[in-house]
Every structure is written in C-alpha cells, then in structure tokens.
C-alpha cells in the first residue's frame, strides 16, 4: 500500500526550478528518509505533501501527487484544511504556541470545532503518551509550553500533530536542533509511531537515515537520483553520486 505516489513532479519558485521531474513512491506505515545536500529540494518536496507551498507566492507546480492511490492532492475538490489534518507536519526547530501544554495539543481539534472537554482531554493524554511526553508533563498540563526544554518542545509538537490522527507525519530535520539524548528519544518515538503513521523525514544525518528509515530517497539539485529500501541504498547504491554522498565525499 502506498501513502503517496509522486508522478513527474516539477516545481518552480519564480524561475528557480527546485524540483525536476520527481517520481517516487512513499509506502504506508514505513519511514521514508529524504537525503541530499543542502538546497536540493528536500523541504520543498516535503511541503508539497501537505501543500504548504501554496503559501509561498509565485510558485508553479506540474505533475501529480496521488494520495491513497487515487486522490490528486492539488485537485480543486481537495480541501486543503482537511488535507493538512490528514498529513501532519513537524518543523525543524520546535515551534510550540505560547500557550499551555494542553492548549497546544488541543489546538488542532479545537480548530475542527471540537469543544467537548472529555474528548479533548482524552485525546491530549493519548497524544502525549504516544509522543512519550506524558510522564514528564502529566502534572503540569497548564504550564506554558515555552517553559519546556527543546527536546520536550519537539515531542510536544509531534503530540500536537498526531492529536489529529493523521495518516502521514512529515518531519523536516526534527532533531537538528536537539542534543543526542533528545535525538535518541525522538528516534525511538518514530519507531513506535510507524505502527500507526506513515513517516516522511528529511535528515542530514546519514547514520540517522540508516538507523530509522525503511526507504531512502537521495536528491541532488532538484532531481531524484535514487530511491529504494534503505539497506540497498546504503550498501549497494546504483548511482556513483549516491555512493559519494553517503560515504561523505561531498555534500
């Protein structure tokens, strides 16, 4: 089963051709890592999946992204707001809202118009548990989220995203602002989350990609060079450029 099927995707920022004819599959309930040197279009592709690129003026997109097999996500009939509740996103630096921990996690639900207190607190607890943050914050749900540590904030952002029960979780370098211990926690978390969610993660750490991902896609200057099961890409890359990048010869 596929979460996304990307077909001949092209994207321009004004005249900057940032994604060139990208075609790839994102399988369901697996971790797919997007790797490649800075500026190769990883974040751009990630933002295509939840249409955050819509917010950037003067972008042009051609090609298709099919979700769950048949829905073209840029089709006019697709409700962006609904798409984003189904495709959650975690950003590079933790960005909790300056409100309480509880309100942060409940934010998405409340935007859906859900007011029922019981339902809200049940979801908040479930999400925080899934994000492995519950034990640390269960006694201080009313504390301001900005008072948490960086690693806790990032897990809160994950909890906030999964509170909406999305089918896909997009993560753009989620651990680049964190120390090794917090990073390890988030990596563990991803392993357990992939039971329920499809995860697409952008990372600059080869070891992280190797450790956590099932699929890996390597990009260079907007082009998809090679994609496949992580073990294959790391052990027997087909393309010379992939091999060079993975072994640290450039990038």
């Amino acid at each position: 089963m596929l979460a996304f099927k990307v077909e001949n995707l092209n994207l321009w920022y004004e005249d900057n051709h940032a994604l060139i004819d990208v075609s790839m599959d994102v399988p369901r309930n697996q971790v797919t890592a997007l790797i490649g040197p800075s500026g190769c279009g990883k974040s751009t592709l990630l933002r295509c999946f939840n249409r955050m690129n819509d917010l950037i003026p003067k972008t042009k997109i051609t090609g298709k992204i099919l979700m769950k097999g048949d829905v073209e996500i840029r089709d006019p009939s697709v409700d962006v707001v609904k798409l984003r509740t189904d495709v959650g996103m975690v950003f590079q630096s933790p960005n909790p809202f300056p409100m309480s921990i509880f309100d942060n996690v409940a934010y998405g639900l409340r935007c859906q118009g859900i007011k029922d207190k019981k339902q809200l607190s049940a979801t908040v607890e479930r999400s925080l548990r899934q994000a492995a943050l519950w034990d640390e914050v269960k006694d201080s749900l009313q504390r301001n989220a900005l008072k948490l540590s960086g690693g806790q904030q990032q897990r809160l952002c994950i909890a906030r995203a999964i509170a909406l029960e999305p089918s896909v979780l997009l993560m753009d370098e989620p651990t680049s602002a964190l120390d090794p211990i917090a990073t390890a926690k988030i990596e563990d978390l991803m392993q357990s989350l992939k039971q329920m969610y499809t995860i697409v993660i952008v990372t600059h750490s080869m070891s992280q990609a190797a450790r956590i991902s099932d699929q890996t896609a390597f990009f260079l200057l907007g082009e998809l060079i090679e994609a496949g099961p992580t073990a294959e890409i790391f052990q027997v890359p087909k393309d010379k450029r992939t091999e060079d990048y993975i072994s640290g010869k450039f990038g």
């Binding site: 939840n50 955050m52 917010l55 707001v81 609904k82 984003r84 509740t85 959650g88 996103m89 950003f91 630096s93 960005n95 909790p96 809202f97 300056p98 934010y107 998405g108 409340r110 935007c111 859906q112 952002c157 906030r160 995203a161 909406l164």
Partner: peptide, 26 residues
C-alpha cells in the same frame, strides 16, 4: 514569528483561525 503561523496552518487551521487564535493574541 512566522513559524507559529506555519504551525497553525499545518494543523489544519484556516487563515482566519490562525489570525484570531495565534497571531492576534500574540
């Protein structure tokens, strides 16, 4: 910060909700 607007929109909030729930209070 723009990151708060991004966070709000990525959680399925509409532009109006983002303005009234996140931008204006801050």
């Amino acid at each position: 910060p723009g990151s708060l607007r991004m966070a709000s929109l990525s959680l399925g909030a509409s532009t109006t909700q983002t303005i009234f729930k996140v931008v204006l209070p801050n």
